[in-house]
């Protein structure tokens, strides 16, 4: 790791100003930045720490919905009763992430901005396309954990598990930059490798996420996040799904189905939503929606199992969301 300046601003505006200088990086919990720096993947000249910045640790019901400050830790998120009651998918996702130790440090903003876990990307001796090279080694190489959708250019999977959960709750990502504040609907927050190979999120240089606003459940509705891991303590998802629905009588309406860990960015599955909308969300309907969710998968040599797994994962997320809606 190389030496760097340590900058401790007091406000988000000051943080943005500090980061305007080239080569500087924001540090939330540091659970991703530090490993990136240790392995030489990032060598910032200055680190701007975001702890204690005004307004970035709030978690409250506002006119925008539930506003979650970007410096809120995953631990705070998954112990909050408002989140549990109104954003169950977000609650599930935060609780499922990493370990208690990591959750105590890792922040909402950092979770959305973390870099992919692809072992070629993370290996210092591979100049893969994401690092400016001209090859995606995962296409011919060891691709058990890689993408099964949209994977012709780069085979990373997006590692954020809050991402799909936020999307299921129609989140808006609020960012502050040199040119002021922007509000980015979560659907537009992700950047595909075909658009820009060097990033996964739609932040301009020097822009900082200050908060995320989510639409809380209302009426007879429920949401859930389901992730499958090889290991139950501290492991990245093999497949994930966030689902939300509202019950209109006994029929599902306003369905959201977002899948994660299967493509370079989280994917909303509108075809699957259409299958479920207007149907009683029972096991058969959930399987039918899941079939629609996996349609078009293009697995690689070693990850076809993820298609089978994703199908069940979508089904289970839907059934949990439906059960919660019935209880609400």
């Amino acid at each position: 790791m190389k030496n760097f300046d340590w900058i401790t601003p007091a406000t988000p505006e000051a943080a943005v100003q500090a980061a305007a200088q080239a080569g500087r990086a924001f540090l939330g919990g540091g659970t991703d930045l530090l490993p990136l720096m240790k392995s030489g993947l990032r060598e910032p000249t200055g680190v701007v720490q975001l702890k204690g910045l005004t307004g970035m640790e709030r978690l409250e019901l506002t006119a925008d919905g539930i506003t979650i400050g970007a410096s809120i830790t995953l631990a705070a998120l998954c112990t909050d009763t408002l989140v549990q009651r109104s954003l169950p998918a977000v609650f599930d996702a935060a609780r499922h992430a990493a370990t208690p130790l990591v959750r105590n440090r890792a922040t909402v903003g950092g979770n959305l901005c973390q870099r992919p876990r692809c072992w070629y990307f993370r290996h210092p001796d591979y100049a893969c396309s994401k690092k400016g090279g001209d090859t995606c080694y995962a296409i011919e190489g060891e691709n058990k954990f890689h993408a099964i959708f949209d994977n012709t250019t780069c085979n990373i999977v997006h590692p954020s598990n809050l991402g799909p959960a936020f999307w299921a709750h129609d989140a808006v990502v609020v960012v502050l930059g040199p040119k002021g504040e922007r509000r980015i609907p979560v659907a537009e927050f992700w950047v595909r490798p075909e658009e820009d190979m060097r990033t996964e999120v739609a932040l301009e240089p020097g822009e900082l996420i200050t908060s995320v606003s989510c639409k809380p459940l209302s009426g007879r509705s429920g949401s859930a996040f389901e992730e499958v891991n090889e290991k139950q303590s501290y492991d990245w998802g093999l497949v994930a799904c966030a689902a939300r629905l509202t019950l209109d009588g006994d029929k599902a309406s306003d369905v959201r189905i977002v899948i994660g860990a299967v493509a370079p960015v989280p994917l909303r599955r509108e075809a699957a939503e259409a299958v479920l909308n207007g149907k009683v969300p029972n096991e058969a309907a959930a399987w039918a929606a899941a079939d629609a969710a996996i349609a078009g998968a293009t697995p690689l040599r070693d990850n076809a199992y993820k298609v089978t797994m994703l199908r069940a994962c979508v089904k289970n997320a839907i059934l949990t969301a439906a059960a919660r809606a019935r209880k609400s």
Partner: peptide
């Protein structure tokens, strides 16, 4: 241990993708 067939590096020389069970396992 996962070895890359292309360039021959171990791809999981860490405690993240080299999986050792934790308490929940």
């Amino acid at each position: 241990r996962v070895m890359d067939r292309q360039r021959g590096h171990q791809l999981n020389a860490d405690f993240e993708a080299y999986k050792v069970p934790g308490m929940k396992d």
